Amino acid sequence: MRLESITLARGDRVVLEHIDLHLTEQRIGLVGDNGAGKSSLFRLICGLDQPQSGRVSVHGYRTDEASERRKLPQHVGLMFQNPDDQIIFPTVAEELAFSLTAAGIGKQQARQQARDFLAARGLPDWAERAVGELSQGQRQQVCLMALQITTPATLLLDEPYSALDLPSQLRLSTQIAATSQQIILSTHLLEHVQDFERVLWLDKGKLRGDGPGRDICAAYAQDVRERAASNAAAEVLQHAAQADAT
């Protein structure tokens, strides 16, 4: 997929500026502070937002062409940060079957394929489980399986580890590692992307780093440490000045 000279603005605020990317690697990480533009980049790739300038092409389909944009769900899937924003149906099997019926498969066939899909992953007993009884990590697993079952070429995972405890992170990480599709994953937990072949670092809407996971994660972490130290020093000086004033 390609993003060519992309600029995205919301009102007077520039969200992404002059972004040029050709994303071909199987595992791509996306890091940066809150508000850096990571979720907005995903929305552009899915065709949910349109840039003020530039062009986005996803597996040969242009997102600014309505007829081509309608075909994007067959090729790219987005997993939201909060699974409750994505899950619709009360049971796991129904949720997975919905992904298939939305892709044009009949309801009966979709239900059977959903059960077969779960059984193949050692989870046959999940079929009738109520989504509301699942943990946060298990609901994230369901969201990912709902994307995997229709086999889009690319999966966009927006902060999938947020609010998960360590065991849930490990289970989800194992599920992601076993996925054959291209993964683009945004996260603040650098250990989950430091071994990726490519990581992008967004900083205030601009691409500040692009390279091997370990290099970019180390550079971003160092930048965070330096900013924290600078802020701490500024606070000390401020408190000293206030003390002198009194």
Results as ranks from 00 to 15, higher is better:
24 T>H: 14
156 L>V: 07
11 G>E: 07
132 G>T: 08
204 K>Q: 15
165 D>M: 04
120 A>H: 12
41 L>V: 01
40 S>R: 04
43 R>M: 13
170 L>Y: 13
233 A>R: 01
191 E>L: 05
25 E>M: 09
205 G>M: 01
116 D>M: 05
60 G>R: 00
59 H>T: 06
192 H>Y: 13
166 L>E: 15
184 I>A: 04
226 E>Y: 02
100 L>W: 05
118 L>I: 01
39 S>E: 00
171 R>Q: 13
70 R>Y: 03
82 N>K: 01
158 D>R: 05
57 S>R: 13
145 M>Q: 09
144 L>H: 09
51 P>R: 03
176 I>A: 05
86 Q>H: 15
165 D>K: 03
4 E>W: 02
53 S>R: 15
180 S>R: 14
62 R>E: 15
188 H>G: 08
38 K>A: 04
190 L>M: 01
60 G>P: 02
181 Q>I: 02
187 T>I: 11
138 Q>L: 06
39 S>L: 03
121 R>H: 11
157 L>E: 09
205 G>C: 11
109 Q>N: 05
213 G>D: 06
42 F>C: 05
199 V>W: 08
42 F>K: 00
204 K>E: 15
162 S>C: 05
196 F>S: 00
4 E>G: 08
191 E>F: 11
123 L>M: 14
232 A>I: 03
177 A>T: 13
177 A>D: 13
135 S>G: 10
190 L>P: 01
163 A>F: 11
125 D>Y: 04
35 G>T: 00
19 I>H: 00
66 A>P: 14
77 G>C: 09
142 V>S: 01
73 P>V: 10
161 Y>G: 01
176 I>Y: 00
25 E>V: 02
17 E>T: 06
150 T>N: 08
181 Q>A: 12
61 Y>H: 10
112 Q>K: 07
175 Q>V: 13
168 S>T: 13
164 L>T: 07
90 P>Y: 06
172 L>E: 14
53 S>Q: 15
44 L>M: 05
80 F>S: 08
131 V>Q: 07
152 P>L: 00
246 T>Y: 11
157 L>T: 02
132 G>R: 06
240 A>E: 15
31 V>N: 09
71 K>W: 04
8 L>F: 04
217 C>S: 03
6 I>F: 11
129 R>H: 13
177 A>G: 11
129 R>G: 08
171 R>I: 03
129 R>L: 04
44 L>Y: 08
19 I>G: 00
239 H>K: 15
234 A>H: 09
225 R>N: 10
242 Q>Y: 09
95 E>W: 02
102 A>Q: 15
40 S>A: 13
104 G>K: 08
65 E>D: 15
195 D>Y: 03
198 R>K: 09
244 D>L: 14
216 I>F: 03
118 L>N: 02
224 V>T: 06
11 G>A: 10
88 I>H: 10
113 Q>E: 10
41 L>S: 01
12 D>K: 14
79 M>L: 10
119 A>E: 10
209 G>K: 06
245 A>I: 11
1 M>R: 07
92 V>K: 00
13 R>G: 02
77 G>V: 10
215 D>G: 04
11 G>H: 04
245 A>N: 08
227 R>V: 11
83 P>L: 00
184 I>P: 04
5 S>P: 01
53 S>T: 15
221 A>H: 05
156 L>G: 01
143 C>A: 14
130 A>E: 12
55 R>L: 06
217 C>D: 02
104 G>P: 10
63 T>R: 08
121 R>Q: 14
215 D>E: 14
